[in-house]
Structure formats: structure tokens, C-alpha cells
Nucleic acid binder design. Structure first.
Lengths: 220, 220
DNA sequence: GTCTATATGAAGATAGAC
DNA sequence: GTCTATCTTCATATAGAC
């Protein structure tokens, strides 16, 4: 079941309906991620989706409905990497894999990252319940995984919450601040070498921060 | 001279003018930082500043004028910490001090941090020239400082750009994602112990990432 | 399913009284 | 300096023809 409830999504959709809904969600993600809920307009979204405003409103009854649909659409992708962190795995390997996954998502879906960032900077008015009922349990569970690694002497003591926050911070920064990074370096995560360097740097800082030494091979 | 040009600021201001301009800029920072340029309204800004819409427009001729004034007002605070990074100082000490300063700014002016974040996520349409003509020279200069530390063997090799980006990412994250952090932990940088723990964690990751060991004393 | 037309309201900005 | 009134534009949403 979707984490964002009350989203209108009919059971049976024709090909053209599927396609138009997809076009709208894609355009809406782009607009909402840049301008936030208030700043985005269905006029611009509809134009970007190649249709009229009234046609968009045939598919989604209102602006909030479009926004909720976009959120529901990208939420799983947002939560999945953390879910895969395995308590029984090797800490260095698990954290490296987690960081690589987050960097992959940041590179492939920077707009989704920015949409959540925008929403959270507004005080998360439309996703607060998701934060409290979906993200928090997951966050608590994975914090405990890290705490267990500490208690069993596998890694040095660190506040699990801050470890997770700093990983989120570094991996999402490259998506959220893409335009600044591009202005300063001419590169983005889209460039393979740049992404690889960024990923290695983050992995090195995280692993050494907990007393582990990163493996030499280059991460993807 | 201000980095953001073309900002109307009369030379002689009465006490009431000073006070009202300050009230407006304060309210505007709050609104723009949450909703971005498009999403914020001068109606809400004026109400938050305790005056009518038309009165606000007596002080600032337009919405863009208010926005530019806010940017100009917070820009120095934004750039100052990086400026103080001293090439001749001890790397561990300089970087620790830099991180502590950034965390201090994040704690004391989270809205300013979010305003810039918002602007940059939109592609920096109104600060691109600042990024290119003010931030980039500074960024290049401080990247060279780090490179010199590497070349003289004071720290381990690291890409200076990624070192700076990850520091920015971690320190700004606590301001920009305050609502999420609050929802997950119940704390923010406003709480002294929380800020101290966050700062220590960041310093440890950064210093160890470049082969240095952080000092034991607790950072502010 | 898609269009034009339109109702309704919100938002930026100006004019002019006080 | 501050207010009310107003103009204009833009945005959400609906109605109804095709």
C-alpha cells in the first residue's frame, strides 16, 4: 500500500491515460522540485506535459492532488536505500553500499531529492505524517543496527543519528545543490568521474569516522 | 560594497524607517526561506511585519526589491566563515574552527541557510552572478589552500572541492532539514548538547578523512 | 478526452486621501 | 508614513460544447 494515502488512482487505465498521467507526474515533479508547492503552477505543469490546463485537471482534480500523486510516486525510491542496510552484514560493506545507493539515486533522480528538500524546508506540512509514521520507525530501526555494531565492537562509538544525518547530508547535497556545484566546478553527478570521486570521498570520511578503513577498489 | 547590486537603500533613514525596513527584512527572510521567491507573498510578509501591503510597498518598490534586499543583507554572513580559513594555520585547527563557525551560523540563522538552499535548488536564477563572481573566486582560493596542505604533506590527498562540499553539506543540513531532524530526534541545533554532538561528529569525520586525529576537547 | 469560455479569488502594484 | 480603494494580472477550478 502506498505510504501517502488518499491519492486518486483509478484501477483501470487506458494506454493514453497511463501515458498522460505519467507525463503530468513527470512535469509536476520538475516544477514542484524547483518552486515548491505554492510556487509551482498547474499552468506551467500542463504546458511542460504538453497539454492544456483543463486537460490536466481532467486527470487530477486539483493542484494538491497532483502534488500528493507525485509524492506517492517517488516515496518508495526515497526510502528504499536505507531499508536495505543489513544488520548482519559487514559494517564497512553495508555502509559503503548504502552510500553508493544514495549517490546513485541522487544522480538519477535529483529532482525527487529536491522535492523532498523543498517540502522539508517548508516544515514538511504535507509529509510530516510520513516522517513520523514511516521514516521514524525505519530511522530508529537502523539507528539500533548501528548501535549494535558499536556494542559488539565492530565500529567505534558514534551517535547513530548523527552518522545517518551526515550521510544523508553529503549524498543529498550533490543533488540538491547541483546548480551551485556546477557553477563552481563545471561538473555534476551526471559525470561518471565526478560521481566516483564524490562517492569515494564520502565513504572514506564515513568509514574512518567510525574507525574503519575503506577498501581500495573504486566505487560505482 | 554590497555583493548584490542595485539594491535600493537610501542614505538617510529615520528611526521609524530603520525599524520598519528591519521588520520587513526579517519577515521577508522567514517567508522567502520557507516558500521561495514565487511561493512567498508580499501580503503575508507585510502581515508578519505588522503592517499593510501598501505600507510595505512604500519601503520597497516591488517583490524582487524586497528579495534582493534580503539577499544582500545575509550574504556577508554566508560567506564570512570560509573567508577566515587561514592558509598559514594548522589544518586540523583551521578546519575545526571553520566547521564550528558554520554550525554556529546554521544554529543562529537557519532561515538564511534555507533561503540560499531554496534559491540554489531553483537553479540559482537570482544569485548565479554572486556564485560566479564572489563565491567561485573564494572557493578556488580555499581549494588551493587545501591543495597546498596536501602538497606540503600536512594532510592526506583528497579532492579539495569534495572536502569543501561535504563540509557545506553536513553543516547546512542541520539548518535546512531542521524539521525532519526534529521529527526524528526531537532535537535541533538550538539544543546545546545536540549541536555539540553534531559538531564533534562532523569534525571527526572530516579530520580523519584527511588523516588527522581530532582534539579531545569538546567544540562549541 | 480535449477544447474554449468563464467564474472566482489571490496577488502585485498604483493612486490619492489623510 | 499610512491608509483605503482600485487596477491588472495571474492562477485555480468549473461548465459545457465538441
Amino acid at each position: 500500500m502506498s505510504a501517502v494515502d488518499a491519492v486518486e488512482e483509478p484501477a483501470h487505465l487506458s494506454r493514453i491515460q497511463e501515458k498522460n498521467r505519467a507525463l503530468i507526474l513527470d512535469a509536476a515533479l520538475s516544477e514542484f522540485s524547483k518552486y515548491g508547492f505554492q510556487g509551482a503552477t498547474i499552468e506551467k505543469i500542463s504546458k511542460a506535459a504538453g497539454m492544456s490546463k483543463s486537460n490536466l485537471l481532467y486527470y487530477f482534480s486539483s493542484k494538491p492532488a497532483v502534488y500528493q500523486a507525485v509524492l506517492a510516486h517517488i516515496l518508495d525510491e526515497w526510502l528504499t536505500p536505507l531499508r536495505t542496510l543489513d544488520a548482519n552484514g559487514d559494517p564497512a560493506e553495508e555502509l559503503s553500499k548504502y552510500i553508493m545507493q544514495k549517490m546513485k539515486v541522487s544522480a538519477e533522480a535529483p529532482e525527487a531529492s529536491r522535492l523532498f528538500a523543498n517540502e522539508i524546508m517548508q516544515g514538511a506540512p504535507r509529509v510530516m505524517s510520513v516522517l513520523e509514521h514511516e521514516l521514524k520507525p525505519l530511522f530508529d530501526e537502523k539507528s539500533q543496527v548501528i548501535q549494535d555494531w558499536i556494542d559488539s565492537g565492530k565500529i567505534e562509538p558514534v551517535d547513530p543519528a548523527h552518522l545517518i544525518f551526515t550521510i544523508w547530508a553529503m549524498t543529498q547535497h550533490y543533488a540538491d545543490f547541483e546548480s551551485q556545484i556546477s557553477a563552481l566546478t563545471g561538473s555534476t553527478l551526471g559525470k561518471k568521474a565526478f560521481r566516483s570521486d564524490a562517492t569515494s570521498t564520502i565513504i572514506r570520511m564515513v568509514l574512518r569516522g567510525i574507525g574503519l578503513e575503506p577498501a581500495k577498489p573504486n566505487p560505482g
